[in-house]
């Protein structure tokens, strides 16, 4: 655990908090892509299946407890978000702007996970699938943003925190590479792709929102 990793995780938590705050405060899920939220839920469940494995034989360190708590928070908050979007605030969701075809993303990531993984076991392929899927899970949301052309400020704060947390993970990996000889190509390449997908968004967020303007696409 280093300062980059912990900051990134806290920023990820903050992004989830902002999203829940946005929905509760405005009592609306307008501007939020259900498809992206669904993909994140699939990502968390596929990746954190190890929660259901026996922990008895693992050495129990503080970081293990930390990971377990975070995994439970990520899974439960993403399922809760789906509930809010599909039930509680359903009337405020506009499916006509959320039209990205996630079937292709799911199929592509499954194919890549079957082809490029560290070990060909069910758990390992699902973990790899979740890494690839997380990298592209924001695409329906960015697509929705480009269709509507503008976003509420709180929604842009959510997206910024969500994108920036992965950017800080890049620093964490550089740090770990130097300090621990840690190497993980699957995670590194996916993380770089994930961060790159946000570059346009980061630019507009910096140009407009940070200068007190509304987020409007040029």
């Amino acid at each position: 655990m280093n300062v980059f990793r912990i900051s990134a995780d806290l920023l990820h938590l903050l992004s989830i908090f902002i999203l829940l705050l946005k929905m509760q405060k405005t009592r609306s899920v307008a501007g939020i892509s259900f498809k992206t939220q669904l993909l994140y839920t699939i990502v968390f469940i596929a990746r954190y299946l190890d929660l259901f494995e026996s922990h008895a034989e693992k050495s129990f360190e503080l970081v293990t407890l930390y990971n377990i708590v975070m995994k439970i928070i990520f899974i439960s908050s993403s399922v809760y978000t789906l509930y809010l979007m599909k039930k509680k605030f359903r009337a405020t969701y506009d499916p006509n702007t959320d039209t990205f075809r996630i079937e292709y993303l799911l199929a592509l990531c499954l194919f890549l996970a079957l082809m490029f993984n560290y070990r060909f076991t069910v758990m390992e392929v699902l973990w790899t699938f979740s890494i690839y899927l997380e990298a592209v899970a924001i695409l329906p949301q960015l697509f929705m943003l480009s269709r509507t052309g503008e976003a509420e400020t709180i929604t842009t704060h959510y997206l910024f925190a969500l994108g920036f947390y992965r950017a800080i993970y890049l620093l964490n990996w550089i740090w770990r590479f130097h300090m621990e000889d840690y190497v993980d190509w699957i995670v590194w390449i996916s993380g770089a792709v994930q961060t790159a997908l946000y570059s346009d968004f980061f630019y507009i967020y910096y140009k407009k929102v940070l200068h007190g303007e509304k987020f409007v696409l040029p």
Partner: peptide, 10 residues
């Protein structure tokens, strides 16, 4: 990457 393939990140 070591043989145990420890996944200690989230």
């Amino acid at each position: 990457r070591d043989e145990k393939n420890v996944k200690d990140e989230l």
